[in-house]
Design a protein around this nucleic acid. Structure first.
Lengths: 247, 247
DNA sequence: AAATATAAAAATCTCGAGAAAAAGTATTGA
DNA sequence: TCAATACTTTTTCTCGAGATTTTTATATTT
């Protein structure tokens, strides 16, 4: 019963059906923010969004409050809600913290994972590889790849017994995904991720913690460069989706 | 502007006045849960709590949703809210994750802190020491000590530039405080914390990262023993504040 | 007596309307 | 032309009431 504290309505990503309208709106909103449908800094007016998401005003407010603690939405005093702004500094922070959390998780996972876990790692890698092959052909492959990439990273650390580390990993992954989607908006496939995933998968199954963490660290840090070399308009334009008053 | 994402309605602890009824109810609820006024597992019925906190049902629900993502409250499908249950396993997880986060934060703080930060560390330590002296005499000293202990730990890592690490530290500290309050319910002053704080303060100001982190790790881990040696009734009784149906 | 089924009660979830605050617009005066 | 003020519109915040669902209590059957 110990992990029940983290298996709350906010955590479950896939699988489970939303049991309430609040939870449903929360997930759709979260997805749309991560995918950039609601760009950073955009004002989230309840009156407009209630039609778009087909729920009442109160329900929508509850969903927004859930996103506030996830740091995907900011609530400003009595001036409504807004999609959390982005900045290079913030992404550097997210990335470095992610390295700290995710390498520790991987280390524990490698130390404690059983054969079944190894199998799941290989399976997730295989599914990801297949999606990578299809990336150039089909248009819908991008969504598949995003999903399978997330699952691959989650499965890697799934043998880590710490619910809290997994919780934080999910939050940070979602945050960084928001930045990656922006940087990938133009450049379709940025770099040779397949080779990195291959190395990561091999080292993990070989139970070589140091090597696996080294690869994972470089893998995560490389996305930082992608955002660094992103045209500055993205970051600046995104900071004020609506007017931001001078305070 | 990067840290705006974490300076949302959920983060600010002291200082700022609550700008909305939701935020006010959120803070009072959080405090009462951490302090054990609402014991772990207790059913949080909106109809009853709206009178106690003097707000409408919708407002209270929004405050509860904020606590959900903080993992202090769990929302169960369509069966209302409940104070997050506790368990020894969960506390072990919290403690170990806290060591990971807080030592990294301290390391960065020592590496980057300026003279002003050193001064704040010494000041916080002094205030804490004074409160410790008064612990046996006055009855209200307990609350003072709790507050100053929290501030001391926060100031220690305040020079860490990562907003995310500080955010996670706050969440975990709050969680562990919940357990400590329970274990301190009977035994008034458990151990010689003053000497530990002294060592921690000295090593930090001396810029000895390894020594400071070592002391901090032992300091945090020691609270684990306090809970381990807690009468089991606490943990079990707390798990079902109201009836927990067998699923 | 135990177990199932039915009915009553309580609580949750949801929506819409009214008060308070903020933002925007027009007017007035220098 | 610009700044300040007053007014209007929009938006947020809050509360109370109705529809579902869960829970409890009662009655019936094996």
């Amino acid at each position: 019963m110990s992990d029940a504290a983290l298996h709350h309505a906010a955590a479950p990503d896939a699988a489970m059906e939303p049991k309430t309208l609040v939870e449903g709106a929360y997930r759709r909103l979260r997805r749309n923010i991560v995918e950039g449908v609601h760009p950073p800094g955009e004002k989230l007016r309840v009156e407009h969004l209630k039609e778009q998401y087909d729920v009442g005003a109160g329900t929508l407010r509850e969903a927004l409050q859930l996103l506030v603690t996830d740091a995907l939405v900011v609530a400003q005093g009595q001036r409504g809600f807004r999609v959390a702004p982005i900045s290079l500094k913030d992404f550097e922070d997210i990335t470095r913290t992610r390295v700290l959390i995710e390498t520790e998780a991987l280390r524990q996972s490698i130390a404690l994972g059983d054969d079944d876990w190894e199998g799941r790692v290989l399976a997730a890698f295989h599914r990801l590889s297949r999606a990578e092959e299809r990336l150039d052909d089909e248009a819908s492959a991008r969504e598949d790849w995003e999903e399978r990439n997330r699952v691959f990273h989650e499965v890697l650390i799934s043998a880590c017994p710490s619910r809290w580390i997994q919780h934080f990993q999910q939050i940070l992954y979602r945050q960084s995904e928001r930045y990656r989607r922006l940087s990938l908006f133009r450049n379709p496939i940025p770099r040779d991720v397949h080779a990195e995933h291959q190395l990561l998968c091999d080292a993990t199954v070989a139970r070589d913690s140091d090597a696996a963490c080294k690869v994972l660290t470089e893998h995560i840090l490389r996305t930082l460069d992608a955002v660094r070399h992103m045209p500055t308009e993205f970051l600046n334009a995104a900071e004020n989706g609506s007017k931001v008053r001078p305070a």
